[in-house]
Amino acid sequence: MKVAVIGGTGLIGSQVVSRLNAAGHEAVPHALSTGVDVISGKGVPEAVAGADVVVNLTNSPTFDEASPDFFRTSMDNLLAAADKAGVGHFVILSIVGVDQVPELDYYRAKLLQEQILTAGPVPYSIVRATQFMEFIDAVLSWTADGDTVRLPATPIQPIAAADVARAVADVASAAPLGGIRNIGGPEVFALDELGRITLSQQGDGRTVVTDPAAGMFGAVKGDVLTDKGAHLAATRYRDWLAARA
């Protein structure tokens, strides 16, 4: 099976390519660095030509009000090329609870991406993942001020990028779902608790202060970013931290 992995040089994409190739498929990474521009459309027809499956792992360069335009344009270009090339399966990676947080521009943009895919001409699968463990350091940096990090107690179900890549590769190599598969980590934490665990295990002396309005996740109400009924990955957060150290 030939798989065109758009965004195939990034954190998830590079691992998806490796897993698919190790399983005997022909997975080809495409990105701006390989001459594929999903916004202008340059290189897109060539990237999807001859592919049985397209996996789109590209991401908006910003999380603000400009992100819907990125996903609208990129999906229109990719779906048109995939349809013309006779691609039989189109896969995207989205976010658990993406339809439950209309306050966030980026989440509205990702939901738009899903809607464009489901209304499009190519059989599809959507993989929704909970928050990546690899992004927790960035989340801490958003609200850091000197020796203090402010975080809300938003429930988070962290999943390792390697487990996300495994799930995406598995979906890409199977028949189209025609729907959504939720994946998540095996544990749920309050984000402020997760911050304390992270700083403690890294030997970081900063203090986490619980602030319901802090950062992007302060806009999230309830536990919509978790799903205990999702396909659960094996990697636990403290084990991931220890392995990274």
Rank of each mutant, 00 (worst) to 15 (best):
A172Q: 01
L11M: 15
A27M: 10
P123D: 03
Q131L: 09
V122H: 01
A234R: 02
Y107A: 06
V168P: 01
R238E: 13
D69K: 13
Q202P: 04
K84F: 05
I136K: 02
A31G: 13
S67Q: 14
D211E: 10
I95F: 13
I92G: 02
I180L: 08
K42F: 07
K110R: 15
A167F: 06
H25C: 13
T58D: 07
S18V: 14
D83C: 12
D239M: 04
T118V: 07
P29R: 04
P152I: 04
F71L: 12
E193I: 12
V48F: 07
A242V: 08
P68C: 11
I126G: 00
T198V: 10
A245P: 03
L11W: 07
R244P: 04
Q15W: 06
D211V: 11
L151S: 04
D170S: 06
D137R: 00
G120T: 05
F90T: 00
V122W: 02
A153P: 11
G222P: 08
A82S: 13
N182E: 12
R244Q: 08
V149G: 01
G179W: 04
L117P: 01
G97I: 03
A242M: 09
A233H: 01
A22M: 08
L112I: 11
Q113E: 15
S200V: 14
T154K: 02
S67G: 15
G24S: 13
I156M: 09
D137L: 03
V139M: 03
D69A: 15
E187G: 08
V149R: 03
G120N: 05
